[in-house]
Amino acid sequence: MKPAENPPRLFEHPEFGQDWRAAAGDEVASEQLAAWGQGIAKQVARLQATPTAISTTVSTSAIVASIAKFVLPVLAVGGLATTYTLLQESAEPEAPPQEVAHQEQVLAEPVAIDAAPGEPAAPESAPKKRMKTSFEPVRTASMLPAQLELFAKAKKVADGGDFTQALRFLVEFEEKYPDSPLDPEIRLARAEYLVRAERLNAATEELQRLLVDPTFHGKKALLFQLLGDVWMKRGRCDRATGAYEKALAAGLPNEESAAVGTAIEKCRAR
């Protein structure tokens, strides 16, 4: 189809033009847009106030500290299952579900996330499938330092107040290491950064998922505290108080419980 002029639009189609008219006229609610605008303004203000803390390298001491912090609990909790997972990292990636396979094929072109219009995207180093032979050494924990390094990057930018960039690192992490033993840590961090980045809808959904996941049974205090923060940011003191009380009941650490107690007091005073 190479028309000299623009062809008639689908909303003029005699059979299903009505559907396309409805879809074309579907607007984003102005309240929703206003909320996004506020979220963006806050993040921009935060970025302007904080010097850019994005670093592409992480110091050795940070990596070592991260390894000590995350590997030990992972090994303690995960035990044999973790070791098994690590061993599995050398296996071929699983095939995508049939129904999305064709889309995956189409999406295989390289795209640069921040590419300017018209700029070619940098070629992506897509992992190439290759046949595994019995002569290859089995990789065990070799991927873990890279995982820890990426996680440390996310934490570092989050510490600098750039939660959007931190979330981007976590997305990159999940893409690169979908079966990582650090997955619980990553999901917790994601929930926290979503709250801090004021992405309240996504944060609420993530927190609700984590609260019903048995993996995070021991983290309920933290999760309820974050949920309380979400409700506070939404101006719902009533619901925030409920969440904070559950956080206290679930056993928040002392330093956190003081802050939560103050928030509850404030809410009651309103």
């Binding site: 981007r168 979503l194 309240l200 996504a202």
Partner: peptide
């Protein structure tokens, strides 16, 4: 809910 993220992130990246 991802729309929330993507819309905001678009403008943060632009910033």
């Amino acid at each position: 809910p991802h729309v929330d993220d993507l819309v905001q992130e678009t403008f943060i990246v632009a910033f």
